[in-house]
Design a protein around this nucleic acid. Structure first.
Lengths: 206, 206
DNA sequence: TCATTCCGCTACGGGCCGTAGCGTAACTCG
DNA sequence: CGAGTTACGCTACGGCCCGTAGCGGAATGA
């Protein structure tokens, strides 16, 4: 992600250094957390000069976004046979991701940073948020093919946005603000709430 | 909040300094945001020695929590006549609070810090989270008195926790992660989703 | 070979952190 | 009213990290 420019002339950037830096970033996040994480620390740990970090990332926030983004790539949505099972599955896997110390300590931090940095917000959106949103779109599409949800009549954008904020928001809030575990019991209760609400809403709205 | 100990002997702590510091903290949050906020800056701005800050707060996080907490006190739940109207009202007022620059930039930041600091987490919970939760409890109680919700048969704890995480989580996620405005249209859609889900859930669960 | 680009290293000014020490101000108790 | 106690403003400090500059050398393409 740092430099998508394919070089023609000159020494190419070391891919090994990239991996070492991102690995060191995640490891340091686990050990010391976001606030104590420093660029100098990461550079030393990665066996890399500090200047090399600044040649690729503008600062700590950008670096951490890229380091954590790959974890969100691991999120998948296997077909569990029903919309209910799919939702429960994505809730639990997303919760498991948020319980990892790397993501737990850094996700809220980069979101906070992005409130005063438009470029960073775009990066977070592209690298993290949109990847989660795809799961919602995929699950919705699958449910429509099963006949569990009505086909789109008008613009599905607002509905998808709402569902996404409700699911991701509730899971994040439970995991990071309320700081309580998300087990199967909670996932079941939450899924029931969402699905019943959706069903009633789709009957009610024209 | 800094020192609840009522002094017997000696010079008492200046209440004016407290106000000046907290005011300066909020003003600085608006201007420079969380990450650029420094204790030195706040001290200078408040017309107070830096040592005075450290005599009352352990660090930046604790200071900001107290500075922002008073804003959450302004949240109220006026009786709008129906559960639906009450929910829409609390969603909109909570959203308005989150759109203020002081809270927008600092709420996620202190949550992030609290993931690696148990004492801070307790402070956040007491000063911010529990004050929001009271609104959910009050709204629920009011709806029960109106007959809109069934009386508690078993322990209402899990249900209240779930509702709280869903409402607060969705609003926070929409406002800070998706970074889109929360207008009446969104509040209406969201409230419909929640209420229909609740109604169906209360019919389904024994 | 030569130009180009990246690397590691060293060094730097600047800022903030959090604390210590001092003299002074404000308040309580005897 | 004095003595003891606590908070205040001020100054100064070591320490850490930031972000950048400048260097010699290494790895590539022309």
């Amino acid at each position: 992600m740092p430099a998508p420019t394919p070089h023609r002339r000159g020494r190419p950037r070391s891919a090994a250094a990239d991996r070492a830096i991102l690995d060191a970033t995640r490891a340091a996040l686990v050990e010391v957390g976001w606030s104590r994480l420093t660029m100098s620390h990461v550079a030393t740990r990665a066996g890399v000069a500090k200047t090399t970090l600044y040649r690729r990332w503008a600062g700590k926030s950008e670096l951490v976004v890229d380091a954590v983004a790959v974890l969100f790539d691991e999120l998948e949505l296997p077909d569990r046979g029903s919309l209910r099972a799919d939702v429960e599955s994505v809730v639990l896997s997303f919760a498991a991701l948020l319980e990892r110390p790397e993501t737990k300590t850094s996700l809220m931090a980069v979101i906070a940073e992005s409130t005063y940095d438009d470029a960073l917000r775009a990066r977070v959106r592209e690298a993290i948020v949109e990847r989660q949103k795809r799961l919602v779109l995929a699950g919705r599409h699958r449910a429509q093919e099963r006949g569990e949800l009505p086909r789109d009549t008008d613009d599905p954008g607002p509905v998808v946005d709402l569902i996404f904020d409700v699911i991701a928001g509730a899971v994040v809030h439970r995991a990071l603000v309320s700081a309580e575990r998300i087990g199967e019991e909670w996932a079941r209760r939450f899924t029931t709430l969402i699905l019943d609400g959706l069903a009633a809403a789709s009957r009610a709205t024209p």
